[in-house]
Simulated assay, not measured.
Amino acid sequence: MTAPSPQLARRGMQWGGASMARMQTIAAILILALLPTANALACTKTVRWFDDAPYSFRDSDGRIGGFDADLARAALARVGCKARFVELPWARALVELEAGRLDVLPSSFRSEQRERFAHFSAPTLQSPNVLYLGPGVAAKYRFARLEYLLGTNFRLGVQIGVSYGDKFDAIKANPRFKGNLSPITLRRNAWKIMALGRIDGLIADQASAELELRQLGLGEVLRPSRVVVSTNTAMFAFSKQSVSPHFLADFNNAIEGMIADGNYRKIRARYLRCTPDIKVLGCP
């Protein structure tokens, strides 16, 4: 068998080297083309949920749904991310958000204290917090403002870690008001306690209260008072430890786009009625 000439051998090495270089170039182009997809798939944000219909709940198929859940899922998808829902009570969710172990906390009110550790999105909902009264309480206590409770024996149920707006936070700072407060963990249980006469009143988001009282069969027993505690606008809170201002801007653009193209309205219609009191974005 005859060995190739030195000239042919050199040409083979050159061709082989050129082919290898072309293959490496093609591989690099393919890797760069796939990077956005890989990054998008890798983008997962933890989102708080809890059994708090109509904002978040687990449906009969085991899927997390609700106004907040669906809105978070859709908006995150628009910025190339997916939501991983984490079940947390409200007080614990604030701790996790501050530590950066939770990325997104829906339906949050902006406050000076929370701004230390959270970014806030554009407004997503305005549903008033209303004072609800137990059986016979309306006849005993006649007042139109929350501060009129000061100096009375009124027992007010308040969820631990929950802000009911600026007005409530200001009154809560009054030492005289602490004697009126009865801390509660779960609002659904608090309705039952109030029906038994163990607390006199409870502050609750109107949309949640209407649904829960109807489900518990207590809609005619526990009634809303004339006291509107707050009309603050709810927002998505993002942990400053894990979410950048740039991401927040992209998320806000996604919400704005959903309002413009009607997708926000579709999500709202699944869970919330447009009433004069509940001013959801996209309502006529």
Rank of each mutant, 00 (worst) to 15 (best):
L218I: 10
A138W: 00
L216I: 00
G151I: 08
L76G: 04
F238D: 04
I31Y: 07
T185Q: 12
V104Q: 08
R48N: 13
L131P: 03
P123N: 08
T275G: 10
L222S: 01
D250V: 06
T152F: 05
Y141A: 10
N174V: 10
L88N: 04
V229L: 05
D250Q: 14
S242V: 10
E212M: 10
D103V: 05
L102S: 04
D68P: 11
R22I: 12
T233N: 06
R145D: 14
A209P: 02
S208E: 14
A75E: 06
A195P: 05
V229D: 06
R78P: 08
Y164H: 07
Q159A: 14
A53D: 03
V227K: 03
G100K: 09
P284R: 13
R63A: 15
A72V: 15
G65M: 05
A99P: 06
G165L: 02
E87Y: 07
L272V: 12
I171V: 15
T233F: 00
D200T: 05
T233P: 00
L186R: 14
V79T: 15
W15M: 06
L272C: 11
A204S: 14
V280I: 15
S60C: 03
R73V: 09
S107R: 11
G66R: 01
A139W: 06
K279T: 07
L202C: 06
L34V: 09
S108T: 15
V221C: 01
G157S: 11
P36A: 07
P135C: 07
A254K: 06
Q215G: 00
L94W: 13
V227W: 00
R48W: 05
Q7V: 12
V158H: 06
S56A: 09
E212W: 00
V243M: 14
V243W: 02
D68H: 09
G161Y: 02
L216N: 01
F120T: 02
I203F: 03
V79N: 06
I255V: 15
S56C: 06
L35R: 03
S19Q: 00
V158Q: 04
V95T: 15
V95K: 12
G201E: 00
R101Y: 11
R265G: 02
A237P: 00
I171N: 03
C283S: 15
A138D: 07
W49T: 03
D261V: 05
K240P: 02
G66H: 05
Q159T: 12
L125H: 11
A269Y: 08
I278W: 05
R142D: 14
L218T: 04
G217K: 10
S111N: 12
L35E: 03
V227S: 05
Q126K: 07
L102I: 13
G134L: 09
S230M: 01
A38F: 07
R198K: 15
P276Q: 14
T44H: 11
L156M: 07
L125W: 08
R84C: 10
C274Q: 15
A9M: 14
G262R: 13
R214S: 11
S60I: 13
L41K: 11
W49Y: 15
S111C: 10
V280P: 02
Q14P: 00
S230T: 08
G151Q: 10
R188E: 12
L186Y: 14
